[in-house]
């Protein structure tokens, strides 16, 4: 059943991505001020949203693990963090390419860029820590605690750097601005691409969760064999 869901999600995501790529590169016109490079936002914004959704789902799963003690939540949280880190890196890299063309620099210490980088560093530390702990229950407990601290910290980083300095363009989606900042056809394409990327991320999470569970089963069998 799980395989069918994975294949289904991957197939729908692939079809939707192919349609989106066709629309983005061959149908939508260049943006008046930025030219062709604006198209990078169709990947930059959905990758950022996917990453953020992932971290907060992982936060929920970490709290669930701590309250129930079921390792399934831990495997799922770890898989989601792993996939979210990948999408956060995609977000930073695409943003950096856009900044090089528009601002003439690869990086600036703007609050969104800095908080995105801090977020990646915190969750990379989460993944590194998981590799350093062999005992599954201890690993799950410590990872859940770090995930909770990390998510709270990301919120504080976001708010504090907002006061500090900013250069990043303001929000464009109507859901945050009330409309008027982006052409409806372009906004529709952002949401379509977000849907495709979310489905791709969900398929990746399911595959990684299966791998995590298999690794844990192999590990417990090895421990059993060593104990015998």
């Amino acid at each position: 059943m799980r395989e069918k869901v994975v294949f289904g999600l991957a197939a729908v995501s692939a079809v939707l991505l192919a349609y989106d790529l066709y629309q983005i590169f061959l149908v939508l016109p260049d943006e008046a001020a930025q030219g062709a490079i604006y198209r990078i936002m169709f990947f930059h914004i959905p990758a950022a949203i996917t990453g953020m959704i992932g971290y907060f789902v992982a936060l929920t799963l970490s709290i669930l693990y701590l309250s129930t003690g079921r390792l399934r939540y831990d495997s799922l949280a770890a898989s989601i963090v792993e996939v979210s880190v990948v999408f956060s890196i995609v977000n930073i890299v695409t943003g950096s390419i856009w900044a090089r063309v528009i601002w003439g620099i690869w990086w600036t210490w703007d609050y969104r860029l800095t908080s995105a980088l801090v977020c990646v560093l915190i969750f990379c530390a989460y993944l590194i820590m998981r590799r350093a702990i062999e005992e599954p229950t201890q690993r799950a407990r410590l990872s859940a605690a770090l995930c909770i601290f990390g998510c709270v910290d990301v919120v504080i980083v976001w708010k504090s750097i907002e006061w500090f300095r900013t250069q990043h363009p303001g929000p464009v989606l109507s859901i945050r601005t009330g409309g008027g900042n982006i052409d409806p056809a372009m906004e529709r394409m952002i949401y379509l691409n977000l849907l495709a990327i979310l489905m791709m991320a969900a398929a990746m999470v399911l595959v990684r969760t299966r791998q995590e569970q298999t690794a844990r089963e192999i590990d417990s069998l090895r421990r059993l064999a060593n104990a015998a």
Binding site: L121, A125, I128, M129, I133, L146, F149, G150, D153, I161
Partner: peptide
């Protein structure tokens, strides 16, 4: 406390706390 029983404890602690300390 979280890292006290880990291998590479001295390495893990800075990797975890410095990003959290940024704000």
């Amino acid at each position: 406390a979280l890292t006290v029983n880990l291998r590479l404890r001295e390495l893990m602690l800075p990797i975890i706390i410095y990003p959290l300390l940024i704000p």
